[in-house]
Computed example of a mutant assay.
Amino acid sequence: MRAWIRSFSQELVRLTGRYPALYTSTRWWRICTGNSPEFAAKHPLWLADWSNRAGPLPGGWRTRTIWQYAGKGRLPGDQDLFNGTMSQLRKYARG
């Protein structure tokens, strides 16, 4: 799985100049990548954790960029929260 993520990421960087956000749960990351810290330095984390509080982070990440905290709610679709200010969100969106 780590090789696939690495290859996918390199292709996106080649095409766009940006590293993709990695969407995962801590449990999946632990099981499927061995809790690898390899991607944390360059990839924003989109953490799927449907609980009252964002739980532990996958290997290597110090913070999450986006927290998906529910599959439904007040807004249509999944419920996501950006971890920062509006100006930081604009900067993130623009690369």
Rank of each mutant, 00 (worst) to 15 (best):
M1Y: 10
R2H: 06
R6S: 15
R6G: 07
R6C: 10
S7R: 13
S7W: 06
S7G: 12
Q10E: 15
V13R: 14
V13N: 07
V13Q: 14
V13Y: 13
R14V: 08
L15Y: 02
L15I: 06
T16D: 14
T16Q: 13
T16H: 13
G17N: 13
G17P: 14
R18I: 02
R18Q: 11
Y19T: 08
Y19A: 05
Y19L: 10
Y19S: 07
P20L: 11
S25D: 14
S25N: 13
S25R: 04
T26G: 07
T26C: 07
T26V: 12
R27I: 12
R27C: 08
W28F: 15
W29P: 07
W29K: 08
R30V: 11
I31P: 01
I31R: 14
C32D: 11
C32L: 15
T33M: 10
T33Y: 05
T33E: 09
G34N: 11
G34R: 12
N35Q: 12
N35K: 08
S36Q: 10
P37Y: 08
P37R: 13
E38K: 03
E38S: 11
F39D: 03
F39Q: 03
A40K: 06
A41Y: 04
A41F: 02
K42I: 05
H43N: 14
P44N: 12
L45Q: 01
L45A: 06
W46H: 09
A48I: 01
D49T: 01
W50A: 08
W50Q: 01
S51R: 15
N52R: 15
R53F: 07
A54Q: 08
G55R: 07
G55K: 11
G55L: 07
P56H: 10
P56W: 05
P56L: 03
P56C: 01
L57V: 09
L57G: 03
P58G: 04
G59C: 05
G59M: 04
W61C: 05
W61L: 05
W61K: 06
R62W: 00
R62Q: 09
R62A: 02
T63K: 15
R64I: 01
T65D: 00
T65M: 00
T65A: 10
I66P: 01
I66Q: 00
W67L: 00
Q68Y: 04
Q68P: 07
Q68E: 14
G71S: 11
G71D: 13
K72E: 10
G73M: 05
G73E: 05
G73H: 10
R74C: 00
R74K: 07
L75F: 11
L75V: 03
P76K: 03
P76A: 04
P76F: 03
Q79K: 07
D80A: 10
D80P: 02
L81P: 02
L81D: 01
L81R: 15
G84P: 02
T85M: 09
M86I: 04
S87D: 13
Q88S: 12
Q88R: 13
Q88I: 02
K91Q: 15
K91M: 08
A93V: 14
R94W: 10
R94F: 00
